[in-house]
């Protein structure tokens, strides 16, 4: 092996990487927040919602969970314009990630809701709370606490999966790495550096989600 490693390009191209990183972070934040919100709403609909709503949500969830993310992304970015819905690459990327996490999050959160003891619903009802109030104030937080590790993993998976958005020219971290290696022909170094950044990002995201869990859920209960 006589390949000479050269990281000299970093001097010139680090702003490109930084911009890619910023976009990946933005996609993850928006996708994470709205995706989890969508997941919670869908979980409520499937577990406790009105009967007519359930098949609609089930169809959405099964469609997303049984097709590749890349195809969903292409469908939104290349397919929808035929119907007159034209989205920019970042909007399309955000939307795809929200829809994707919403479906997986739905099933995870639903498991947490369905593990709620019946007595919690009855206690809420006996105190005069409506079904929706009982869900929001009584059931939701302990349900999220039960499935928080699984939901955190899913958010990290979606963050890593966001690499696919480079395929519709959204200028994320993967797009930046591709761009740099095509300019410098330093494929190993470009992907090595971007790999390291993804790794650091994933670890940081997991820590952040763990911290969020600590602040969202009381330390004592259920542990």
């Amino acid at each position: 092996m006589n390949y000479a490693f050269d990281y000299g390009w970093l001097l010139e191209y680090w702003p490109v990487l930084l911009k890619g990183l910023a976009i990946t972070v933005e996609l993850t934040l928006v996708g994470g927040v709205f995706g989890v919100a969508l997941g919670v709403a869908c979980a409520w609909a499937r577990a406790l919602g009105p009967k007519w709503l359930r098949p609609i949500v089930t169809t959405y969830v099964e469609m997303i969970r049984n097709t590749p993310f890349l195809i969903q992304l292409f469908f939104i970015f290349f397919g929808l314009p035929s119907l007159g819905v034209r989205l920019g690459e970042l909007e399309a990327a955000n939307l795809a990630m929200i829809i994707n996490l919403g479906a997986y999050g739905c099933e995870i959160v639903r498991a947490g809701i369905q593990a709620t003891p019946k007595g919690q619903f009855e206690a809420g009802a006996s105190l005069g709370m409506s079904r929706i109030q009982t869900f929001w104030y009584v059931v939701l937080i302990p349900a999220l606490q039960r499935i928080w590790p699984a939901l955190s993993s899913q958010i990290v998976i979606v963050m890593l999966g966001s690499a696919a958005v480079s395929q519709i020219a959204a200028e994320d971290l993967t797009f930046a790495a591709n761009f740099i290696q095509s300019r410098t022909f330093r494929a190993f170094e470009a992907y090595f550096v971007s790999t390291a950044i993804y790794l650091a990002l994933a670890i940081a995201l997991r820590q952040m989600l763990r911290g969020l869990g600590w602040s969202l859920f009381p330390k004592r209960s259920g542990r």
């Binding site: 007595g119 105190l127 709370m129």
Partner: peptide, 24 residues
């Protein structure tokens, strides 16, 4: 109830406060 059914994520005080604030 037989099984108390307190809300596990709320302190004793918040357990007593919740329905007053939400319902009344």
């Amino acid at each position: 109830f037989q099984q108390f059914n307190l809300f596990p994520h709320l302190s004793a005080g918040k357990n007593v406060m919740l329905s007053q604030m939400v319902v009344k």
